[in-house]
Structures are given as structure tokens and as C-alpha cells.
Simulated assay, not measured.
Amino acid sequence: MKQTKPTTEKASRYDHLEKMSTFELLININKEDKTVPEIIEGEIPAITALVNVIVKQIEEGGRLFYIGAGTSGRLGVLDASECPPTFGVSDDIIIGLIAGGDIALRKAVENAEDNVSRAWEDLKAFDINEKDVVVGIAASGTTPYVIGGIKDATENGLLTGCITNNKNSPLAKAAQFPIEVEVGPEFVTGSTRMKSGTAQKLVLNMISTSVMIKLGRVKGNKMVDMQLSNKKLVDRGVKMIMEECGVKEEEASAILSKHKNVRAAIKALGKD
């Protein structure tokens, strides 16, 4: 039986790219990128199911782990690393792991993604347990590191999800909560850092942001638990307090300086 080529590996709809003008290249890349959000819309029910499971597990003391290789791994680490400063959670609630370790964030690590048992070893270093959720990210849906990690996690009683860009992939079949965002052939054939990566980033934004909101880390539409790690964020915090509590800048600045947290400052002013 002839095996169907994954859509992420199919030939681009465009050819002779080197003959295109800069303007033509940009127009055509953008044309392809614009299709991604519409395709993601069709997966919102699947994303909803995964978000609800993650919220439940974290409320019971669990954590969310992303595992991936290459671009997919980097995007998982990025999403995890942005949650503490944005939502004020500790850095051990959402954890991103990449095949080959942190060095692979900057440089490709040869054969790292081909080790089927390595992901579980990486996860065990965090004392992973049945309260945790593991989400595998792989454009192809065939990455051994990710599939192995998801299978091992499932066999050990953990809930598992995935984000992939091919339908009916081995990864999607291994995960309990699969998200399959099939964006079609890439502008440069096989370059999944493009539409596939964009789709993964958008889905990760949806997952982590929704989880944090459901866990009470946003008030109204404001990041009241954000870390005040630079002047820009302090100024943003002051403006939040002014808007929420109807006080002048001087008072807002003073109370934020005292409490070091927007939520705590709002509460101190009796507006929580």
C-alpha cells in the first residue's frame, strides 16, 4: 500500500521562488499566512477540550509540560517562559522541554529528535506524576522524541495532548486530546517554520492565555499579576490602577510601590 505524503512535505503551490521580486515573495508569503487563523477556527472544539483538562489538572496541583523538537520545541519553550512574567505564576507550572536540551534553542542538535525514549527521561527529571499534562508539538506528527514522550506519559497514567499540522498522524493517534491544524504545503516546500510554526504559536497563545484566565490570573482584561520587571511594566501597572480605581497617578504609583503587585494594590484600594 502506497503511503500518503504528509501535507507538510508536499510541494509548494508556488515555484521559481528565486525569480520572484521581493514584493512578490512577501505578497505570496502573506497570502499563505492569512489562511492559518481560519484553519485553526475549525479546531477550536479540540482546543477547548484540552484547555479544560489542563485547567482541571493545574487546579488539582498538576503542571503543563510541552515537549517538542526544533521549531516546535522552541515555540513550546517560548510559550512556557512567557507565562511567569505575564501572569505572575511560578516557572514550574508550565514547562517547555526541547529535544537536545537548552542548547538546542540556539543550535540544532544532531539526531536529538530521533531518540524515542529521551523525552520521558527528560520529563522524569521533573518528578512528573499523574496530576500533570503533557502536550507534544510536532508539525509532521512523526517526530520520535515527541511520539515516544506522549506514549510513555499515557502509559504512566498522565493526560496527553498534541499540536500537529497533519491529519491522522502517529502523534495525533497517540495523544488523548489531539489538535490537528492542517495548514497545507509550505511556501518553501517542507519549511514548517513557516505556516506550521505560525499555527503552533497561535494555538499555544490560545491554550496558555485561556488557561491563565480560567485560573484567575486576569482581572477584567488586565494582567494584574504580571511581574513588574522593568519601567514599562511599572508604568502599565500604574495606569491599570488609575483606570480600575479612579485615582490619580501619584496615588497609584505610591500604592504600587508599596505593594509591588497590581492586584494587591487594587485590593488595598478596596476595588477588588
Rank of each mutant, 00 (worst) to 15 (best):
K214I: 13
N165C: 15
L123H: 00
I40A: 09
P85M: 13
G70P: 11
K231V: 10
G61R: 02
V247K: 05
L75D: 01
E60C: 14
L75W: 04
D102M: 11
G96L: 09
K219H: 15
V116M: 12
L215G: 05
V55I: 10
C83G: 06
T198I: 10
G197L: 06
V247Y: 09
I58C: 02
I147P: 00
G148I: 06
T189R: 04
E18G: 05
E59L: 13
T154I: 12
V262M: 07
L64H: 08
M206E: 03
K201W: 03
Q200E: 00
D152M: 15
R63Q: 08
S72L: 13
Q3I: 14
D15R: 11
T4N: 11
V262T: 12
Q176K: 14
L97Q: 08
V146G: 03
K56V: 03
E243K: 06
G136Q: 06
A138S: 14
R236D: 02
D272N: 08
C83Q: 12
K124R: 10
G70Y: 07
L123V: 10
Y66M: 14
K271L: 06
T22F: 11
C83R: 04
L26W: 08
Q57I: 00
K231E: 14
T189I: 09
I67M: 14
I179C: 04
L269C: 09
T209K: 01
M223K: 01
N230K: 09
T192H: 05
K201N: 02
K271V: 14
T8E: 02
V262S: 02
A264M: 14
E113I: 07
M242C: 10
G246E: 03
V247D: 03
E32T: 09
N30W: 13
S210H: 00
K56E: 10
L78G: 03
D235V: 08
A268L: 13
S253R: 15
L171G: 03
Q227E: 11
R236Y: 11
N115A: 15
A80V: 08
T142Y: 05
I47A: 04
N30C: 13
L26C: 14
T86P: 13
S208L: 01
F65D: 06
A199G: 01
S253F: 13
G76L: 07
Y14V: 07
E18D: 10
S117L: 12
M194A: 09
R217I: 10
W120E: 00
P84L: 14
A99T: 00
E186W: 11
I27M: 15
V183C: 05
N168G: 08
S12T: 05
T8R: 00
C162V: 12
L228S: 07
A104N: 03
E244H: 06
I103E: 13
